[in-house]
Design a protein around this nucleic acid. Structure first.
Length: 312
DNA sequence: CGTCTTTGACCCGCGC
DNA sequence: GCGCGGGTCAAAGACG
């Protein structure tokens, strides 16, 4: 859904209050005071008018800022939508290798289970239809390199999802153990994660994600948790990467606390404002109720304008 | 008591 | 067929 195509982001939420104010408020100027009481009243009205103009100027400026924010948010929303479309095009549904293995083995064994017999047979028919497709579709695999303290022996990478460790192995090519995690946030989520220290740099944890989450991101991510165990994914990019070309790779440096950059510390700088705008936009666009709330706000403004227009 | 982690056993694919 | 290695299972213990 192209959000900006549906919504004119240039709309003035306050409907240019200065104009409507001037049209109505300039009328008293033309009046000629007939006596001192009338003169005094006009002075008070002028003062009031000045204050109102000042406030309206302030509101207009605020309005302009909000409109700009809205434009940025809509751009971000469209960008996110495009990314979502792209990833959904290139992703797979559920192609867990072990499940496939089990399904195949159950097909070979036949229906030995009397209870699950009918469903098994129906699923085997589905599988036979799916087989050619499954050969072409591979689970979406992405990798993330996380820089941690070398002394940190835990293989926990906190990325906002809830993981359950179900195994650990020492592989041949790497003396460091490899930990296996399943997403436990949603029972049916097929996503698995492998975490192992890089053989080249023991301070780097390599997390390999298989599949895609079929549920929203954890509403209470552990990004800010005070737990001392594990490391938390941050947003500081790191250039170290030497992984398979087929996999998406993100490398993060988490050895340092995640402070704002120097430019971000200067609150008045355009970079910091841009950062703020991006943060706000991303936060808002992640909210599933954002669209409806925005639409309600805008329609509310329209209704307000209409009622004001009717009054005049 | 429910959930999570640990860890040895087991399963399965693959190369020889 | 056999052994190896990666991946998974599941029982037991830890923990809140």
């Amino acid at each position: 859904m192209e959000f900006t195509s549906l919504l004119n982001t240039s709309l003035d939420l306050n409907a240019n209050p200065l104009r409507s104010f001037d049209e109505s408020s300039l009328l008293p100027k033309q009046e000629v005071p007939s006596d001192f009481i009338e003169l005094g009243r006009n002075i008070t009205v002028r003062e009031e008018k000045g204050a109102l103009i000042e406030e309206l100027n302030r509101v207009s400026a605020e309005n302009k800022k909000l409109t700009e924010l809205l434009t940025v948010m809509c751009e971000n929303y469209n960008e996110l939508q495009n990314r979502l479309k792209y990833t959904s095009k290139h992703s797979v549904v559920d192609n867990d290798a072990s499940r496939k293995r089990k399904a195949e083995s159950s097909n070979n064994n036949g229906n030995t289970d009397g209870i699950n017999g009918p469903s098994e047979s129906s699923s085997s028919e589905e599988d036979s239809c799916k087989k050619p497709r499954e050969e072409h579709i591979k689970p979406k695999i992405s990798r993330a390199c996380v820089r941690t303290e070398a002394s940190d022996t835990s293989l926990i990478v906190k990325d906002g999802y809830q993981w359950r460790k179900y195994g650990q192995k020492v592989t041949r090519d790497n003396p460091s153990p490899r930990a296996y995690f399943k997403c436990s946030f949603a029972p049916s989520c097929p996503v698995k994660k492998k975490v192992q220290r890089s053989i080249e740099d023991q301070s780097i944890l390599v997390a390999t994600y298989e599949g895609e989450h079929n549920h929203p991101h954890n509403s209470k991510p552990e990004l800010t948790s005070g737990s001392s165990r594990g490391v938390t994914l941050g947003t500081v990019p790191c250039s170290t990467t030497s992984l398979s070309s087929s996999a998406q790779t993100v490398t993060l440096d988490l050895t340092k606390p995640k402070p704002a950059t120097d430019s971000m510390r200067k609150f008045g700088t355009p970079q910091f404002q841009q950062f703020l705008v991006e943060q706000m936009a991303s936060t808002l666009t992640k909210d599933p109720n954002f669209k409806s709330a925005l639409a309600a706000a805008i329609s509310g403004q329209f209704l307000q304008q209409n009622s004001q227009a009717e009054k005049w």
